[in-house]
């Protein structure tokens, strides 16, 4: 893929759009060219299915994982106790996986002193045409505006991750591209790339082939 990621990539979206799978794939892509990649799990919304689940995968790829103190524990406390400025100084690339919706983006506000007004930071908005509440471009943009307000950072690009889980095929992806372009246009930004498994990306421009890491345990074998 020929996409130049900034030093700090902030990934947001509606919960369930596939943000975490996108973040994991971006981090592994960056790890191909740098040995100082960090992933920050800022998800204070979702108790299950989050980047903190991928410690082992990241470890074997040389990616450093920073998670909230109580992630994946039985404690449902949105405590963000780490030194984000330190993480950014130590890393060549940082991928920040933010929790879904404005509620999740509020966690960005906690670090506005570190993240605010940085030239080397971009916030990308992941969309999924097949998700409730973002199935039209207008709905997707409405939610994006709420996320931007809560996170105090403006969006600089759309990532199309439209999928139907295991039923995703080439047609699912092909039918979503116009939707993603319209959402990008309505948001006043551009469609950066479309993510899916390689087999679904024939004829798709700006394709980012990804692997599916976020899946239920019965599909893990």
């Amino acid at each position: 893929m020929n996409f130049e990621f900034p030093k700090i990539t902030v990934i947001t979206g509606h919960y369930g759009c596939g943000k975490t799978n996108v973040s994991v794939n971006i981090a592994l892509e960056l790890a191909k060219k740098s040995d100082r990649v960090s992933v920050v799990d800022l998800d204070i919304v979702n108790p299950y299915f989050r980047t903190a689940d991928f410690g082992e995968l990241f470890g074997s790829s040389g990616v450093k994982l920073i998670t909230p103190m109580y992630a994946n524990s039985n404690l449902d406390i949105p405590a963000l106790s780490f030194d984000l400025a330190g993480v950014i100084n130590e890393s060549e690339y940082v991928v920040i996986d933010v929790g879904g919706d404005p509620e999740g983006a509020a966690a960005l506000g906690r670090y506005s002193d570190v993240l605010g007004k940085r030239e080397d930071l971009a916030l990308y908005y992941v969309v999924n045409k097949y998700r409730y509440l973002t199935s039209t471009p207008a709905e997707a943009v409405e939610l994006l505006r709420e996320i931007e307000a809560a996170g105090t950072i403006s969006c600089s690009g759309i990532i199309n991750n439209s999928n139907l889980g295991k039923l995703t095929d080439a047609e699912t992806v092909a039918k979503s591209v116009d939707y993603a372009k319209e959402a990008a246009q309505a948001a006043g930004t551009s469609l950066l790339f479309t993510c899916s498994e390689e087999k679904n990306l024939g004829g798709i421009e700006n394709a980012f082939p990804v692997k599916i890491y976020v899946k239920p345990i019965w599909d893990m074998e």
């Binding site: 108790p47 299950y48 299915f49 097949y130 889980g165 295991k166 039923l167």
Partner: peptide, 10 residues
């Protein structure tokens, strides 16, 4: 259960 409640499927 929590797994079914939280998981995404078509």
């Amino acid at each position: 259960d929590g797994l079914l409640g939280q998981m995404m499927e078509p």
